[in-house]
Amino acid sequence: MAKLKIILPLLLILVLAAWSFFPHDSEEDKAYYVAVFCAVDHHDNQTADQQMRNVIEGGNSDYALQKIHYKSSLGRRIISRWQDLTPDEQQRAMQDNSACRQLMNR
């Protein structure tokens, strides 16, 4: 019984620690990153990632108390989603911003 009182809290701490390592991006964050991605040039994935970083972090005011930092894992997932689109879908997305957001949010 005494071992259970020690093992159970340790197990709970381990589970919470493991859970904290997984990304937890809100739907609002995903939608924001998609909107930023659709607004930048996405012909080259390297520059798209850097452009997204510049837009997201560049929007911070010098006096902001809570600065928004670029989440590279979320940015990579958005770029990966772009690569999963067919060439026709990519072409349509490049021509129409709202179509881009719709295709990327599916």
Rank of each mutant, 00 (worst) to 15 (best):
A93K: 11
G59I: 09
S20D: 07
L10A: 08
L16G: 00
H69D: 11
A39K: 14
L14M: 12
L4R: 12
I7R: 09
R76K: 14
K71H: 15
Y32S: 00
I7M: 11
I78D: 02
G58P: 15
P23Y: 15
C38N: 12
Y63N: 03
G59R: 13
I56N: 03
Q90H: 04
G75V: 12
R101L: 02
V36Q: 11
V55H: 11
V55I: 15
F21R: 01
Q102N: 11
R106L: 08
F37W: 06
I68Q: 10
Y70T: 09
Q91T: 05
S26F: 05
M104W: 08
V40W: 03
E28N: 07
Y63I: 11
Y32P: 01
A17G: 08
L103V: 02
D62W: 15
L14P: 02
R53L: 12
L85P: 00
G59C: 08
D25N: 14
D84E: 09
L85E: 04
Y32W: 07
F37Y: 14
V15S: 01
T47R: 13
L8K: 14
Q51H: 08
D44K: 10
A31F: 06
H43G: 15
I6N: 07
A17Y: 04
G59M: 15
A39V: 04
L12Y: 02
S72F: 00
L16V: 05
Q90N: 01
S20M: 13
L65W: 12
L12P: 02
E57A: 05
Q51K: 14
T86A: 05
I7S: 01
I56G: 07
S72N: 00
L85I: 06
Q83R: 10
L14W: 04
Q50A: 14
V36P: 00
F22V: 14
K71Y: 12
A17L: 02
S73C: 00
A93E: 14
L11Y: 11
C100F: 03
S80C: 00
C100W: 06
P87T: 10
A2Q: 08
K3Q: 06
V34A: 03
L4A: 04
K71L: 03
K3R: 13
L10F: 06
S73W: 14
E89D: 13
L11G: 15
G58T: 08
D96M: 04
I56M: 09
D88N: 14
R53D: 05
V40M: 07
E27S: 06
A17N: 01
C38T: 11
I78S: 01
N60E: 10
L74A: 07
H69A: 10
G75P: 12
A31P: 06
H24G: 09
P23E: 10
L11E: 00
R92G: 00
